[in-house]
């Protein structure tokens, strides 16, 4: 939310994330029921469907001893490269035909990428998190559409579908880790790094979000090619193979 509840909401979501990550790392709750990921009426893409991979919106942070998040642009740059490579490879494996966007096209389509990030956060909170946060009007279904705003992506790329990815990942610095250990001995848990990611498959003719997944965990790394590939695998783990 923007003006009125922003601070509160972010405090809440931070608490929630922290609690969730901790809970997840303690017990291996398997989370993902298929219906959570799929829009009503959608089961899989047709084989050879053309999918444009939108420029992933990625940001890596380091958390200092005092708990301040610092954006690490150099890590981010490298991680973005790893993620794009893995998205291409993975979409081949899943039976899609992927299309790339030029930098110029990506510039022109930046606003829709920004819009996706906002919508993805709402889906993550109101649909995946659900519970008290579910939107009653959505009836528990993955029922979000980016609408006609996606038209220009189809016109630019010729693709019928688009895959959007948004990831934020943070890493505790050495001093932060030391602080965590020290406080843990006193019975106080403070958050280390955690990874939050969203991925959406969007129908470029209707704007409908056909498939969505959220990643939220205290593990994972994007700083090496192998670990970044693992993160992408995990993010796309519920993605239906083309039929």
């Amino acid at each position: 939310m923007n003006t009125l509840t922003e601070t509160r909401a972010s405090v809440c979501s931070l608490l929630r994330l922290t609690a969730l990550v901790t809970a997840l790392s303690l017990s291996s709750i398997a989370f993902a029921a298929a219906s959570l990921n799929l829009a009503p009426g959608f089961s899989s893409l047709e084989k050879g469907a053309t999918v444009v991979i939108m420029p992933p919106d990625v940001e890596l942070f380091s958390i200092s001893g005092g708990g301040v998040s610092e954006p690490k642009a150099d890590w981010t740059e490298t991680a973005t490269g790893y993620i794009i490579n893995e998205l291409r490879r993975k979409s081949d494996v899943l039976g899609m035909k992927n299309v790339a966007l030029s930098e110029k096209d990506a510039d022109d389509l930046a606003e829709i990428n920004t819009l996706h990030a906002a919508v993805a956060q709402s889906i993550a909170l109101h649909h995946f998190q659900g519970g008290n946060f579910s939107l009653p009007t959505k009836g528990g279904q993955l029922d979000w559409s980016l609408g006609e705003a996606v038209g220009p992506i189809h016109q630019t790329s010729g693709a019928d579908y688009a895959l959007f990815v948004w990831i934020r990942d943070s890493y505790a610095s050495a001093e932060r880790k030391a602080a965590m250990v020290a406080l843990a001995m006193l019975g106080v848990g403070i958050p280390g790094g955690f990874q939050v990611g969203y991925a959406s498959l969007v129908n470029l003719h209707t704007g409908q979000i056909l498939w969505f997944n959220r990643l939220i965990r205290g593990t994972g790394d994007l700083r090496t090619a192998t670990d970044a590939a693992e993160t992408v695998q995990e993010l796309l783990s519920q993605f239906p193979r083309s039929q």
């Binding site: 942070f61 380091s62 200092s64 001893g65 005092g66 301040v68 998040s69 610092e70 954006p71 690490k72 642009a73």
Partner: peptide, 12 residues
């Protein structure tokens, strides 16, 4: 200095 992140925050 730990402030380096904010330096790049300026550019972003």
């Amino acid at each position: 200095k730990s402030a380096i992140g904010q330096v790049f925050g300026l550019f972003g």
